[in-house]
Structure formats: structure tokens, C-alpha cells
Simulated assay, not measured.
Amino acid sequence: MTIGRMLPALVLSALLMPGLISSTALAESQGEVTTREDGERIVREYRLEGQLYAIEVIDKGQRTVLLDTDGKGNFRRQPADTEIKAPSWTGKSAQ
């Protein structure tokens, strides 16, 4: 196989690799993220080892973040610009 024939495959691999790495990092730091769409509303549920710890709702451009900060299922509304990461009670929080 010549370089000319391999070049498109190499370029495509190089373009796809950053997305693969970032999605892997997301999965490791946040666990499972489930996304549902209903019209203009997007709902994302964040789970770690099956336990729901965050809900993100984007409705008509407005973002709402609900976090379970104590692991007891008590979700509290957070500022719209809150970064979603695993809380300390999950044992997987960012250090």
C-alpha cells in the first residue's frame, strides 16, 4: 500500500482520536450519562455505579443543574454555570 492510499485513513484517524479520548475521560470521571430529548428540552442524567447524582435540564436555552450532594437522593438546584462532576460521596470526585 502506498503512502497516497494510506494518507486519508491516517488523517481520519487523527481527526477522530481526540473525540475518542475525551469521551473516555468523561466516562471515567462522570460514569454513565444518559441523554433524552423531547422537543426543545434535553435532559441528561449522570450516574456512577448505577447511582444518580446529577440531572441537567436544558429547556429553550436555559440550563438547570440539580445535584445530590450528600448521596441521600436530595437534589439541590445549582447555578446554571455549575460544572458537573462526581460529588465526594461517590468516592470518584475530582481531586
Rank of each mutant, 00 (worst) to 15 (best):
A86N: 01
I55P: 00
P18V: 04
I58Q: 00
R76S: 06
I3T: 02
G61M: 02
L48Q: 08
G61R: 00
R44T: 10
Q95P: 15
G73N: 04
Q62F: 12
K72D: 09
A14C: 11
E56D: 09
P79C: 11
S22T: 13
L26R: 13
L52F: 02
D59R: 06
T64S: 06
N74A: 00
T34A: 13
L52C: 04
G71T: 03
T64P: 00
L52S: 15
K72G: 01
G50A: 14
P18M: 01
A86G: 02
R36M: 04
A80D: 10
D38F: 05
T35N: 14
S29I: 12
L15F: 05
I42G: 11
L52R: 08
L10V: 03
T2D: 09
A25G: 13
A14K: 06
Y53C: 05
R36C: 08
L12D: 12
Q62M: 06
K85T: 13
A9K: 12
S88R: 10
P87A: 02
Y46W: 01
D38E: 15
L20M: 04
L48P: 10
L20G: 07
K60F: 15
I55H: 01
T82N: 12
D59E: 01
N74K: 08
A27L: 14
S88F: 08
V65R: 02
I21L: 03
V11E: 11
E83C: 06
E32N: 06
R77D: 05
R47Q: 11
G91I: 00
S93F: 07
A54D: 12
W89G: 01
W89C: 15
S93Q: 10
L52M: 07
D70V: 07
V33P: 00
F75D: 05
E32T: 07
L10S: 05
L15H: 10
G4I: 03
P18K: 07
E40D: 10
L66Y: 11
A25F: 00
I58C: 01
G19F: 05
L67D: 07
M1C: 08
Y53W: 11
P18I: 02
P8N: 14
T35V: 00
I55M: 10
R63H: 03
T35H: 15
Q78W: 11
R77N: 03
R5G: 01
L15M: 07
L15E: 09
R44F: 10
L26N: 04
R76N: 12
A54W: 08
T90F: 09
V43H: 07
V11Y: 11
E28N: 01
E37R: 10
I42M: 12
E32A: 11
L16S: 07
Q78C: 15
A86I: 08
L20K: 02
G61H: 08
V11F: 03
K72V: 14
G50Y: 07
T90E: 11
R44N: 14
A94K: 15
A54R: 01
F75C: 04
A80Y: 10
L10M: 14
W89K: 02
L16N: 03
Q30V: 08
R76V: 09
L48R: 01
V57R: 05
G39W: 06
I58R: 11
L20V: 15
G61D: 13
P18E: 06
L7C: 04
